[in-house]
């Protein structure tokens, strides 16, 4: 067997082996969770890409998942932009979690088109550390536009979507399904370009 074939074979058959080429090409930021980093392309949240988060329901740690990276961004004095969150991002809780409130911008839009537009504009400006967008658009073109806008900047783009859209196709670089599992958050990687399809359980040590 040729050496290239052997490598290709190994890559295909060994779940713990991945091509360094794909990983090196992805710039990323640590998620703050070792188990999760291991599953993602570039060992962290990929920059300038569309990352889809699909929580099964609200109140399962879907925001806590991002707190480590948001804290890091806040400490670098870069902004964190919430676009159309479903509820009030509660300042006392954000402050308690160590996020500087003066780095948080909350954008409200009357409709989904405006919400996506705001996210795109912010991404293109390229100065936000992270953009968190809540949108349930199913238009492929809309998702691709977000993906493109993300590529133009150096931000993290997290798109929160309804669990109803779990099985619809998406151009996102990473798609994660989130669900509660005995007091922890179970993260299932359902798509990861250059990453691995597997799951991780994360504990946030929240009050019990």
């Amino acid at each position: 067997m040729q050496r290239a074939e052997v490598i290709a074979n190994l890559l295909r058959t060994t779940p713990d082996l991945w091509s360094g080429h794909a990983v090196a090409a992805t710039r990323s930021r640590s998620t703050g969770f070792t188990e999760l980093n291991a599953l993602l392309p570039g060992h962290g949240w990929p920059l300038s890409s569309l990352i889809e988060l699909i929580p099964l329901m609200a109140g399962i740690g879907e925001l806590s998942l991002l707190l480590p990276v948001l804290r890091k961004i806040g400490s670098e004095a870069r902004d964190i932009v919430f676009v159309c969150p479903p509820h009030v991002p509660y300042p006392p809780a954000l402050a308690h979690a160590g996020l500087p409130l003066n780095r948080i911008i909350w954008i409200d839009a009357k409709n989904d088109v405006d919400a996506r537009w705001s996210a795109e504009q912010t991404l293109r400006e390229g100065m936000a550390g992270a953009v968190l967008l809540w949108s349930d658009t199913i238009k492929d073109i809309a998702l691709r536009r977000l993906q493109l806008a993300a590529r133009e900047g150096e931000s993290l783009l997290f798109l929160y979507r309804s669990s109803l859209l779990l099985n619809t196709p998406s151009p996102a670089t990473v798609r994660l399904a989130l669900q509660p599992q005995s007091g922890a958050l179970r993260v299932d990687v359902i798509k990861a370009r250059g990453g691995k399809i597997a799951s991780a359980r994360l504990h946030f040590h929240q009050a019990t």
Binding site: A58, G59, P86, P92, A93, L94
Partner: peptide, 8 residues
């Protein structure tokens, strides 16, 4: 600050 939920 006391511990508070992220969504109010």
């Amino acid at each position: 600050l006391p511990q508070r939920p992220l969504w109010l």
